[in-house]
Computed example of a mutant assay.
Amino acid sequence: MDWKFLFLTAEGRIRRRDFWIGFLIVTVASVVLNILPVLGQIIGLLLIWPQVCLGAKRLHDMGRTAWLMLVPFAVAVVCMTLAVTIAGAGFVAALVLGASQAGHAAAGSALAGLGAASAIMSLAMFAGLGFLLWVGLTPTEPNENRYGPVPPLPAGPDAPPPSGPPPSAPIVEG
């Protein structure tokens, strides 16, 4: 496996196995870096590019444009905006009700806003998870496409057998 191609270029195609290996490496590196207080998060920003490269090549392998990676990001931004707006409205209502001596109603209003905000953020999380599974589990497009040739099959003991007739055995005369 060419690690430089896998993590540093967004052109070409990769198979599902390479995508999941790369995704696991980037995820573990991100978790490890997040243990470091400030420097880890700053260095962790550098992991965005390898993740974009993995996703782009995997979408290319499916015959799709890499711009589709913006869909879960856009869903997250919309959901975040809605969640902050609804939670803020709940807290404003709690402040108004709290000023009028309706303490239980104020707490209920604040909790209702937080509950709705949590539900909306869960929707964003499930949209992102669904996108990840779609990208990671969709089979390779079997033919060459506009993004390049079919990626080679993995080599090794777990590689699928080659297609075609089996090699003929040598004829021994004796």
Rank of each mutant, 00 (worst) to 15 (best):
D61I: 02
V32R: 04
W49C: 02
T81Y: 07
T65N: 11
P166M: 14
N34M: 15
P154S: 04
G136Y: 06
A105E: 05
E173A: 15
M1R: 11
R17N: 07
G130R: 10
V52L: 15
F126N: 09
L97F: 08
P160A: 09
T81C: 08
V84M: 10
S100C: 10
E141P: 00
V92G: 02
A102L: 15
S168H: 11
L6C: 02
V32A: 15
S118F: 07
L24I: 03
P170R: 06
E141I: 07
L45C: 09
S100I: 10
G88D: 12
P151K: 00
I171R: 05
V75P: 04
N143K: 06
M121A: 11
V135K: 01
F126K: 04
G115I: 01
A29C: 14
P154H: 05
A89G: 07
M125Q: 10
L95M: 13
S30D: 12
A89H: 03
Q101K: 12
M69V: 03
V172P: 04
G55P: 01
R58L: 11
G130L: 12
A99T: 07
W134F: 14
P170E: 07
Q41Y: 10
I86K: 09
T81I: 07
V78S: 05
H60F: 03
I120N: 13
P157Q: 14
A87R: 04
